[in-house]
Design a protein around this nucleic acid. Structure first.
Lengths: 191, 191
DNA sequence: ATTTAAATCGACACAGGTGTCGAAAAAGGA
DNA sequence: TCCTTTTTCGACACCTGTGTCGATTTAAAT
């Protein structure tokens, strides 16, 4: 009788996503999960040992769809500038709608459990941006910037905005002024 | 008998600073405060109604010493470059020792209570950096950058690093690569 | 030294979360 | 249909924090 259990697990994971994306990790209790799934405490615990295990399972399910795939896009013959524009648009979307993303929950999860999920994700994004900028410089589309510096600035201002948009009112222009800066840094104007 | 109460309040505020700076806001309980002050629950509550009020009092006491006073420094006849170097060093120090600062606690406090402390502080720093950069441009020391863009990048990457250094291992060079970028952005090399 | 008001104590009731367990219900193979 | 195994239920005991309050101690004015 394995079918039922699997289906229930799927149901739980589906229902629980908005909970974590909107509230973060710490603010989600098993009681909330009960309400949103219609299951009882006992029913829940026979699938997941707690919110930690639940969130890990959710992460495992989500991680696969990887939003920004430079290498794939490069091989599709896109220019560095085109890829950059796509990436910046993605960043803007996520920064303007932080409630749809698990980033904050991941941050809190890492904070609470000491897990290294964030180091993992951070490294992935670092590598991707590094690859993109190198590619753009090689092709002569981008200025010859210090790659390490610019990558760090991109990643940290991105993360800074994400965290801060939770607690201070953030105008879209503020976000766009940062992505605009990145664009100006990279794209050569002397062509 | 007003003297005693005042002294006890001072004692509490002194003892409680490291608690908030090291653990943030949410992770500090009245029990912790009891331990660190030697007072009992009742004794504490007759001074502060809870960790919220306690933290607010701490903020009020701290706010006065304002680390970065551009206008004062400008009137002392310092060059924009000198002020910038001082500010960057301050940023580096705080980013390398986040456990000595109340920033994280303030962030969490704002998150939990919906208070606008952070908006306030954010605006202050925004104004100060704006003033500094304009000053540097006027004096011909800084490049003619887009002020708004650069100020936002500075503030957000600063805040991003501060948040993230809590959960991922952060090399000093990483931090320096960001302050280095700011320096390169601003200081003219064509002189 | 006495008195009075302020400051402190610590036991208490409460709130909201956790994880458990035996009993009940549902699923699906025979 | 019946019987076994899986799944689900919800009451339970526990934990950790909160804020309160009458009793007690301490400070300082007279």
């Amino acid at each position: 009788m394995s079918g039922k259990a699997e289906r229930t697990k799927e149901l739980i994971l589906d229902r629980v996503y908005p909970l974590f994306s909107k509230r973060g990790f710490k603010q989600v209790t098993m009681k909330d999960v009960c309400e949103v799934t219609g299951l009882s405490r006992g029913g829940l615990y026979s699938h997941f040992a707690g919110t930690g295990e639940l969130f890990e399972a959710l992460l495992g399910k989500i991680t696969e769809k990887d939003a920004m795939d430079f290498h794939g896009e490069i091989s599709k013959g896109l220019s560095a500038t085109e890829i950059l524009e796509g990436a910046l648009r993605l960043m803007e979307d996520e920064m303007e709608h932080p409630e749809d993303s698990l980033s904050i929950a991941m941050y809190e999860y890492a904070e609470v459990t000491g897990s290294d999920v964030m180091e993992h994700f951070n490294r992935i994004w670092e590598e991707k941006w590094t690859a993109l900028i190198r590619y753009g410089i090689e092709r002569g589309e981008f200025s010859n910037v210090n790659v390490r510096e610019v990558v760090n600035v991109i990643l940290f201002s991105y993360q800074g905005i994400r965290m801060w948009s939770r607690i201070i009112r953030m105008e879209p222009e503020t976000i766009q002024s940062v992505t605009g800066h990145i664009r100006n840094l990279l794209i050569r104007k002397d062509l």
